[in-house]
């Protein structure tokens, strides 16, 4: 079961790397979050803890329903082109993704001592998601794809925290959820402002401040 979930996270992350349009990016983010939800739910069922059920419920509500919906609404409202603004084309991005996969595999092998293969895989997948988030933030130039990059990083961290270190304390987890949600709302607010003042959301053209 865990293998299928991890595979799902991996595939949806690859989908994000090759996505050319913003709606595609958002829907792959939704798929990734859904697999995360499944992962936490399976842990919750195994350990029979109320805390984990609440966390997985919140995850479903915030990351699968509200945030993607909010991002779709931004796209509809600001009426910019739906292009994600690739600095690297799909082929090179894909090569990068292979490299990042290898890198995260190597790194997680270093961190976890020998004999714990299952944990190495989990760690590798979550590192891969984190690195992909960084990749999206650097090589996609619209403000919206930067937000999604951040969210992908956060998803990777969540997977790491939930599976490897046995989760954060309950109230910290709740606080982090709240925090992520608020930060997405605030960033969305700033996207509206950028669009209003500059009539685009291309962050590469935000270059009035220098030196």
């Amino acid at each position: 079961m865990q293998a299928i979930i991890l595979f799902g996270v991996l595939v949806s992350t690859y989908l994000m790397i090759i996505a050319k349009r913003l709606p595609a990016l958002i829907s792959s983010f939704r798929i990734q979050s859904f697999f995360l939800f499944l992962a936490t739910l399976s842990i919750a069922v195994n350990e029979r803890q109320l805390d984990l059920y609440i966390i997985s419920g919140l995850l479903f509500l915030i990351k699968v329903c509200i945030i993607p919906h909010f991002l779709y609404r931004i796209i509809k409202k600001i009426k910019v082109s739906e292009d994600v603004g690739m600095l690297l084309n799909v082929q090179i991005s894909l090569l990068f993704a292979f490299f990042l996969t290898y890198l995260s595999w190597a790194l997680s092998g270093k961190i976890i001592s020998i004999g714990n293969q299952a944990q190495v895989v989990v760690l590798a997948v979550s590192f891969f998601a984190i690195l992909t988030g960084v990749f999206l933030m650097i090589f996609r130039i619209t403000a919206l794809s930067q937000i999604i990059g951040l969210l992908v990083m956060e998803n990777g961290l969540f997977l790491l925290a939930a599976t490897v270190s046995g989760g954060m304390p309950f109230f910290v987890e709740i606080a982090i959820f709240f925090d992520v949600f608020v930060s997405v709302v605030i960033m969305g607010f700033f996207i509206y402002r950028i669009n209003k003042l500059f009539t685009h959301i291309d962050v590469n053209k935000l270059s009035r401040l220098k030196g």
């Binding site: 933030m137 930067q146 951040l150 605030i186």
Partner: peptide, 9 residues
């Protein structure tokens, strides 16, 4: 607004 965006990201 540009500064705020860079700051927050």
């Amino acid at each position: 607004v540009e500064a705020a965006w860079k700051y927050i990201i």
